[in-house]
């Protein structure tokens, strides 16, 4: 089974091709460059280099967020359209789960992948490996980094932090958790698209038409409107 995996949810642009248990190709960059211009050419190049054409594909896997709204939408739009038009299954995987899987395979403890969400906030969740399978301990959510580390301190477990945005929050993490916190090494911070592909391989396909990114947050106008209209319909 040949799978194309696409991750454009953050600065990292990741494309992978796997065939059953083999990673055939991976493309990763971690630069502030326009995903919209680069994703399709990257897919085209990688597939060409791997001697594959679109009709060889059996499944599409996409990182569904959280992350940059625009970034996630680019990947999800391409993935949905490819899966629909090639008439093959589509699976979505949490962008944070991919980060956790990219560094946490051999970690004995809980894994907190994170993306910076500005103003001291982070997108994060809790994951751990159980018999080689990545399982969710706490769903992805958005909160202040300082509130997150305070909650983790209570658990008294060793926590592996992963993500390219760690330098923004490592002071807060270290201060609250000390030796309880382990920071992933530099080469493991990028979400690996091959990990995304394998996580998606084992997931149930979604309904392509109704599949949407997991933004976590409502659009700002929407939450303001809900706030302003609270109780009006009661």
């Amino acid at each position: 089974m040949k799978i194309l995996a696409i991750d454009t949810s953050n600065y990292t642009l990741g494309i992978a091709l796997i065939d059953d248990d083999r990673v055939i190709g991976e493309y990763i960059t971690n630069i502030k460059k326009n995903h919209s211009i680069r994703v399709m050419p990257a897919i085209e190049t990688l597939m060409k280099d791997c001697d594959m054409i679109s009709s060889d594909l059996d499944k599409i896997v996409v990182a569904e967020g959280p992350g940059s709204y625009t970034g996630v939408r680019i990947g999800v739009t391409i993935a949905k359209t490819l899966a629909w038009t090639l008439n093959i299954p589509l699976a979505g995987v949490s962008s944070l789960a991919v980060v956790a899987a990219s560094a946490g395979h051999y970690f004995d403890g809980i894994i907190s992948p994170l993306f910076d969400a500005r103003r001291g906030q982070i997108y994060t969740g809790l994951y751990k490996y159980d018999n080689g399978r990545l399982i969710v301990d706490k769903q992805d959510h958005l909160l202040l980094a300082k509130d997150w580390v305070a909650a983790l301190k209570v658990r008294q477990e060793r926590v592996l932090f992963v993500g390219n945005d760690l330098p923004i929050h490592d002071a807060v993490i270290k201060e609250a958790l000390g030796d309880q916190a382990v920071l992933a090494k530099l080469t493991e911070q990028n979400p690996r698209p091959a990990e995304l592909a394998f996580l998606g391989r084992d997931k149930e396909p979604v309904d392509i038409h109704s599949f949407v990114p997991n933004y976590i947050r409502l659009a700002e106008a929407e939450s303001k409107w809900l706030e302003a209209n609270k109780g009006k319909n009661d």
Partner: peptide
Amino acid sequence: NAAKAISFAH
């Protein structure tokens, strides 16, 4: 991006 995906796929 939808248009590009269709163009590439077919």
